[in-house]
């Protein structure tokens, strides 16, 4: 145990305080431990890929960070300070933004309304400032998806890619420090996927920390600096993407085997450690 901690400390020595540190997080649903003493961290300007099968607990872990679920056990530190995240509003107050797998858009209202849902711009009379919101929406969408025109239509009427742009716009528009992307490219074609990749690189350059949850190993190897693999609610191990190859990562996902270049977690097979 001590050795593990030491090596972990060594790797990140020169990077200062992590942006996010989730320590020893557990949550159970009706007796089933969805997340079991998991710890992950994230540094500014870093992309950490979170991998694992369906039901491995990665989405659940990340929903605890975004405030959708309340943890049973464990602590969350933002820039070294312990924070209480009990609901989505708390998370947003900490600069944590999430792009959910299901997109989580209100289908029946337009792009601007979705962009500002929960933090609408208001006029000095306290009414909604739709014009200002639409103007801002046009700006941010112009950056993300210059061909987008359908500002007045409910997002239900938009294509998968367009909806994804709205969801991303919403996450990045409010000066997020920490971005959680849950399968951001699942609904997209190759061209749009490439766009998202570009966007992630751009955000990274701005110093934003990103958790990237994905099934797709290619995506993770392309975009992530580090990766953490989960299995059965526990962390199998964490590694720099440059230190491991595809097969080793597959081994982590499928068998829970932690390769030598990775830092094993509580979910790693003992024999492999």
């Amino acid at each position: 145990m001590n050795a593990k901690k030491a090596s972990s400390a060594k790797v990140h020595e020169n990077r200062g305080t992590p942006l996010v540190e989730m320590k020893d997080i557990s949550i159970a649903f009706g007796g089933i431990k969805a997340v079991d003493h998991a710890s992950i961290d994230l540094y500014p300007g870093e992309v950490v890929g979170l991998l694992g099968h369906n039901g491995a607990g990665k989405s659940t872990l990340i929903k605890i960070l975004s405030g959708a679920y309340k943890r049973d056990h464990g602590e969350i530190f933002i820039e070294g300070k312990p924070v209480a995240i009990n609901n989505p509003r708390d998370a947003k107050a900490q600069g944590i933004e999430t792009i959910y797998q299901t997109l989580a858009l209100a289908d029946n209202v337009d792009a601007a309304a979705n962009l500002y849902l929960g933090r609408e711009l208001r006029t000095k009379f306290g009414t909604l400032d739709d014009v200002a919101m639409e103007a801002e929406c046009r700006k941010v969408m112009g950056r993300l998806n210059p061909n987008f025109r359908r500002f007045k239509e409910p997002v239900k009427a938009l294509s998968g890619g367009q909806r994804q742009s709205v969801a991303i716009a919403r996450a990045i528009h409010f000066n997020a420090r920490i971005l959680i992307m849950d399968e951001p490219t699942a609904a997209l074609g190759p061209q749009e996927t490439a766009q998202v990749g570009e966007l992630i690189k751009q955000l990274k350059a701005e110093g934003i920390g990103i958790f990237l949850i994905s099934h797709d190993l290619h995506d993770v190897f392309d975009l992530a600096d580090r990766l953490t693999v989960m299995k059965n609610g526990r962390v199998v191990g964490t590694a720099h993407t440059s230190d491991v190859d595809h097969d080793e990562v597959l081994g982590m996902i499928i068998a829970g085997k932690c390769p030598p270049n990775a830092i094993p977690g509580p979910g790693a097979l003992r024999s492999a450690a």
Partner: peptide
């Protein structure tokens, strides 16, 4: 149509989960 309250009502009706996640 002109207040947050109304906007939230419609957004919640469109997708209750999304509204909840957006902090409503």
């Amino acid at each position: 149509t002109r207040t947050r309250f109304g906007r939230y009502v419609y957004a919640t009706g469109g997708n209750p989960e999304a509204a909840e996640l957006a902090g409503v």
